[in-house]
Design a binder for these strands. Structure first.
Lengths: 194, 194, 194, 194
DNA sequence: ATGTAAGCGAGACGGTACGTCGTGTCTTAGA
DNA sequence: TCTAAGACACGACGTACCGTCTCGCTTACAT
């Protein structure tokens, strides 16, 4: 008697809870987010949340990642430098600024206290992105656009790391101009040119 | 009544509280650390803690940074690559592994939720280290050991970032060998050598 | 499809639920008894219980009274004192000690909070017993074995009351010897014999 | 700095909580009384209640008994029958009708589920009253106003029991006329007068 | 040397949230 | 059609900390 348009009560509720979680987190911040509050605002019993997620961290992870998961697909225009620039700027625009930025920052913060969140963050978001990046880098390397000596796993870290450092540690804003400067430095290398 | 050997009751108490905080954090983790617990274990009234620190985060920051503050002085042997390697390895050994590693990780995590902690972490630890690093890099650049084009502020980020990325995000262990690979990649640059 | 040997699925289930209720109440006490628990232990849906009884109290009343209802028939040997002694001792033995005693005590306790239970307890158990008692007392009075002045309704209360008082209020054990002492006092009266 | 008129914060709060408990119990009944509700209405943290009483039953016992404890003093006019009548009627008027009646009924009900409440009820209320009653009966017996054979401990039970039976079991109202009828029956005895 | 204040331990207090349990209603799938 | 299973909104449980507050007691300073 139920048609495709109303797939299941359970999924409806799950979505509603995730939406409220994002809303509330944006209003009061992750630290003051509470399962009690999410339940009340969604009009849902606390148990309905605990049945789905074991902790505030797990709920928050789902709430932040679910909408952006199919988000950052990798371009391949043939020009690795342009593609990296495009991809990194997209990531910075999505995760490095409001509205998602503060939530993503809080999510990474939570991962430092909660190993389950750290693991899930890696598996659901970081590793897939890294794999795509490494694959793209490998193609570029094979085409001679990157140094044959370049250690591709490390390349992933040196491309992401500086931005995460600025995002999490010094907490200065992330501009496209900054991305450019990082890319320039990485491409050229630190050693004096002969 | 107080002599040099017991400089001040207040300082004694402060030290005792900081010691307990580290102890307790190592035992139960930052998430389950509580001011109530620190007070009880130290044998101190809660007020005595609140009089000194405004929040658990601030207390924890002091507890983690106080002992390691006079820690990572920069060497200058004349060889910038050797000095960087030495310095980064020292930092990794101190902050990247037990016993201090988990505490430092939690501290950075807390900084994501608490702007005051983020600011204090930067001012008391990150910025001073960065300044020393940049100064050392500048000398090397002037001596021709680094590319004249190198953007020194960015250099600081690309040296630290990859290690923080691995420490905070993928949470894989930090070995000296990994430091070496990062340095190699950064020095050589990603572009193919002509 | 159902024959005499399996009178009805419904009745079977009802009996099973009542049995579990008694079992569980004996194990954990009435206060910790729950419909949820009874359903789980019986292997029955909660609805199947709610369809039959409106509340825990009503279920418990049925569970306690059903087996003992056809219990306390009144003897008439011609000797009213002997009959009262026999009857009261039987009641005390059945309801005043384990295994049924604690359940009956809890049932009366529940009746203090739940008027429906109080009413049902009276109608299904107390009043029928009282009617039989009064009838027996009336015969005895007509035969001259009891004072012609005796107020028979009150007689019922003064025979039962002291035992209930001891059972519910002072919660001291009920022995046959105690029954004897009560009967002696009631028969003789408190006034000095002239 | 504090004078006799403001004895202590603690006692103030205790009294406020007990008052609210009685109020709330009268409004919603014992079954729906909750520690949460009492705390909210009193404007007090739940812990402040749990610090003082281990359970709803214990709190309720205090709330009901505290005001009426110094309540039912025994008269001695020299006429035991008149004194019993006076005393029993006073008890019936206080505990057998609103406002206290329903609370006392609920208290006795709770005692059936909670041994601690049963014990406290006995020690703080029932036994002291019983002791006074027995003492008064003993004087009357020595003066020849009661049968020399009367078993005084049992006398206590047969005086109280019928009223408790009516109060708790049949739950009919308790009138002075009923008290009279019980006393008449008990004084005269059930045996036919020769 | 003696007030007098400041710091202190202890812990009560009003709150908020926790994670769990049971209620009574409702839905779903299977017999 | 009735059932078992269990999701659901709700409300209360009893616990844990929060940050504030009052208590006496002990230091240590200023008179």
């Amino acid at each position: 008697m139920s048609d495709d348009a109303s797939p299941s009560r359970a999924a409806d509720r799950t979505q509603a809870i995730l939406r409220t979680t994002v809303e509330l987190a944006q209003e009061v911040g992750y630290a003051k987010l509470s399962i009690e509050g999410v339940a009340a605002r969604t009009g849902v019993g606390k148990h309905t949340i605990y049945r789905r997620w074991p902790s505030k961290g797990a709920l928050f992870l789902d709430a932040v990642l679910t909408p952006s998961e199919p988000g950052l697909d990798y371009p391949d225009t043939g020009d690795i430098v342009a593609d990296l620039r495009r991809q990194i700027c997209a990531a910075v625009d999505l995760l490095g600024r409001p509205p998602l930025g503060p939530l993503y920052r809080a999510l990474v913060g939570e991962a430092q206290h909660n190993p389950a969140v750290a693991a899930a963050l890696n598996e659901r978001f970081i590793r897939p992105q890294a794999d795509k990046t490494v694959a793209r880098l490998r193609r570029a390397q094979q085409q001679g656009q990157l140094s044959a000596d370049l250690d591709l796993d490390v390349a992933m870290d040196i491309l992401s790391g500086p931005l995460y450092f600025r995002f999490l540690i010094t907490q200065e804003p992330l501009s496209h101009e900054y991305v450019e400067r990082v890319l320039d430095a990485l491409l050229a290398g630190m050693r004096p040119t002969p």
